[in-house]
């Protein structure tokens, strides 16, 4: 799985960082998301899929093998 992040779309809601804290964080100043691990291991797949699903800006796209 590869995580693609469309940063200009991000609205800094932080939903991803709450659902998948090992994979996403937020920048301190403006809250825009940061991808901590763009190729997460299988143990994170469920939470990463949920993060992409609840992102209110549709800014997270997953490329699944």
């Amino acid at each position: 799985m590869r995580v693609e992040f469309d940063e200009p779309k991000c609205v800094a809601a932080g939903q991803c960082a709450m659902v998948a804290p090992d994979i996403f964080d937020q920048r301190d100043d403006d809250g825009v998301a940061i991808v901590l691990d763009a190729t997460p291991g299988p143990e994170h797949f469920d939470e990463v899929r949920e993060a992409a699903a609840v992102c209110p800006a549709a800014a997270i796209r997953l490329v699944e093998a």
Binding site: A12, G14, A17, M18, Q26, D28, G31
Partner: peptide
Amino acid sequence: MPPKAIRPWR
């Protein structure tokens, strides 16, 4: 405010 500041409130 930095959005992270509000997360503990959530």
